[in-house]
Nucleic acid binder design. Structure first.
Lengths: 230, 230
DNA sequence: GCGCCGGTTTGCGTAACATCAAACAGGACC
DNA sequence: GGTCCTGTTTGATGTTACGCAAACCGGCGC
């Protein structure tokens, strides 16, 4: 039904035999989500885990008083929604399609047997969790020690590194992202992000439009991220 | 040489047979660290992994420009220094004995075989990493959305929950902790922490002295942590 | 083509905290 | 008991970035 080539090249599945891949795929179903759809919601029972085949997904935490914090963006090829791997029974955040997405979905019930049967998948997955932990720790350090300007620059550079797509002038973040989104990634307000980006655009470091960001002079942003005053 | 009773009751090792425990212990060595000693340093080759048998350990990240951020405190019974579990070859932070400590140490070389041989240990360990990830994500949300006052209150309550020891008046954090330490946990300055704690002491919520904090009215702190104005 | 809506820009006042500065106190050591 | 050291308190001043407000803009649907 689903073709092995869908996942054969993806990081979580490399080192798995074709037979194993077929086995695993036979238990999966493929889903399409339109831009803006929720793949799952915070607090919901973690009934499935997923791999993103195509698109970009925004993972958002919501606080008791309704504020939103973007935990991360998922790019294609990544596993996500693996709550049970970290001993949870519910999802810790919302997952929202930033663009139209194609997702492979497995029932959580086969998680345990899956990690046991395919040790390379298991190792890869735990390393994924590990790198998310490191990422989170780094963000804590940033938030604790850096000023807003640096954090916004860092966030943009990280997205460019993760998803940068060449355009005429430079590298562009290849999904729609608003000032508000960037503020929710960096713990500030859309106003402050807008002010910073206006200044950078005036200096020719970036070009930006409605939900678009293109980095022209990454080195300059890098300097700002590193804490240079101008 | 080392007695099984040392680790038999500890969370990471429950569900392991006595034979397995003996096996594992035979490869361990026990070490003593005086207050202030480094168990390992950031950037160093991760040659060992550890379990804390007694004491408290401060895990500190250092930024390129020398600022310090406290990632967490380790309490007795926890595994730590498990860099290789998350695919690193070096330690991501300093580990410093907050008080005199007793530590069990294994060479990293046996990590892989250990997680493979003892699935219950493996599961427990990955859940530990998972809960540290959740913890980190929560801290990001806090730093992004809450004011300093709330964060400091939350930090104190978390330490009380983790290590609170009953005294005459209330629960005391059972290792020496300075205003500076609290500021490095919450991304603020020792001055601000001092001001907040002075106010709380005046209100009778806490008692504090040199590197000591005792919580008298945890419910009041809880209100502050939750965002109540007074 | 026009109006509407969501996203964006920009100005102004100000709260929250950092920074600078200086005095103060508890212990450890002699 | 005195001295030194480290941690703590408190005040005065400065700055960052938030909150509020209002205007603006670009695309989409009608």
């Amino acid at each position: 039904m689903l073709d092995i080539s869908l996942i054969a090249g993806l990081p979580p599945f490399e080192d798995m035999s074709h037979a194993d891949l077929g086995d695993l795929l036979s238990k999966a179903r493929s889903q399409h989500f339109a831009k803006g759809d929720h793949i799952f919601r915070q607090g919901e029972d973690a009934r499935n885990f997923h791999v993103l085949l195509d698109g970009h997904i925004r993972v958002v935490k919501i606080t008791p008083d309704g504020e939103q914090v973007i935990a991360r963006y998922i790019s294609s090829g990544e596993v996500f929604g693996i709550a049970m791997a970290i001993g949870r029974t519910t999802y810790p955040a919302n997952a929202i399609a930033a663009v139209d997405c194609v997702v492979l979905t497995w029932p959580s019930s086969i998680w345990q047997s899956t990690v046991e049967s395919y040790p390379s998948f298991s190792t890869k997955t735990y390393h994924t969790i590990g790198s998310r932990l490191q990422d989170a720790q780094e963000r804590i350090v940033e938030m604790a020690t850096e000023r807003v300007e640096q954090r916004v620059a860092t966030a943009i550079l990280k997205l460019i590194k993760q998803t940068g797509k060449p355009t005429g002038d430079g590298l562009q973040i290849d999904f729609p992202i608003s000032r508000q989104d960037l503020s929710e990634m960096t713990g500030t307000t859309l106003h402050t992000v807008s002010r910073l980006m206006s200044a950078w655009e005036n200096n020719g470091y970036i070009k930006s439009g409605r939900q678009k960001v293109t980095v022209i002079q990454g080195d300059k942003l890098q300097l700002i991220a590193g804490g240079e005053k101008t």
